[in-house]
């Protein structure tokens, strides 16, 4: 992939996005620049409404950008048509949601198997691979139980197992620790850090939880639809960061 050649898993330049039309038009992203090198864990932080969720949704191929440039492992998901983008998401992106979104009627291992089955893997093989993934996240022996009988931390581990079971290159996490207590949140982050990093992978996490900043390789501070500054986990400005604050969206519009 070209992304590996450039060592950037994610490269966003002047990405802009607005919702609605006319008087009800709201600009969520004015002009965001954001890079994530391969093998790194990046965090998006900032006040509510600053555009974190919009940016992560565009990177993950859930939303299409209005303007700017985007490359995720060499592909611009916004340029793909609906079905192709869905297929790209299935192969490329793993999701960890704030509310876990585990299906209560399915067993734990069946929840983990969902992305594999969506990808066309036979059920028996999907269950086998999902069981292996559950062992990796420390939930061996809980395969047949119901997810609602697990603790919050265990449910988030199941969600992580589900996100990783088909080996996605990009892991996107939305507030993965917000529903967890401090200790459980730390252990979940340790799990993400140890299982998701690799030379051909990248992790993007949206969070408000400062306690997990220590896991980040870079932290993008967002405000008013832009990446305001880029720091390391200790708050020091990062050298060689992508140029920030491109042309405002209004100029494109």
């Amino acid at each position: 992939m070209s992304a590996v050649a450039t060592d950037l898993a994610i490269r966003a330049r002047a990405v802009a996005k607005a919702f609605g039309k006319g008087d009800s038009r709201v600009v969520a992203l004015h002009s965001a620049d954001f890079d994530v090198p391969c093998g790194e864990m990046a965090m998006l932080v900032g006040p509510s409404g600053c555009g974190k969720t919009t940016l992560i949704s565009i990177i993950a191929g859930l939303l299409a950008r209005d303007h700017g440039e985007l490359s995720v492992l060499g592909t611009d998901p916004s340029a793909l048509s609906g079905d192709k983008r869905t297929s790209w998401r299935l192969k490329t992106v793993g999701f960890v949601f704030q509310q876990f979104n585990l299906i209560p009627q399915l067993s734990v291992v069946e929840n983990v198997a969902v992305p594999l089955v969506l990808g066309g893997t036979r059920m028996s093989e999907a269950i086998e691979r999902s069981s292996e993934m559950m062992a990796r996240v420390g939930l061996k022996g809980r395969e047949r139980g119901s997810p609602i009988k697990l603790s919050g931390g265990q449910q988030q581990r199941v969600a992580i197992a589900r996100a990783l079971v088909n080996s996605p290159k990009i892991l996107v996490c939305d507030e993965p620790t917000s529903a967890l207590d401090g200790a459980t949140g730390q252990s979940v982050m340790e799990l993400i850090a140890e299982t998701c990093r690799g030379p051909d992978r990248a992790v993007v996490i949206v969070t408000h939880d400062e306690r997990i900043f220590r896991f980040a390789d870079r932290i993008a501070h967002m405000d008013d639809g832009r990446v305001d500054r880029l720091t390391d986990r200790d708050g020091n400005p990062l050298d060689g960061a992508a140029p920030q604050g491109g042309a405002p969206m209004e100029q494109h519009a």
Binding site: A60, L62, T86, S87, R89, L90, K91, F95, F97, Q99, N101, I103, V114, P115, L118, G119
Partner: peptide
Amino acid sequence: KYFGAMKAMG
């Protein structure tokens, strides 16, 4: 919400 999660997952 589960259908939404599945839609997001592909």
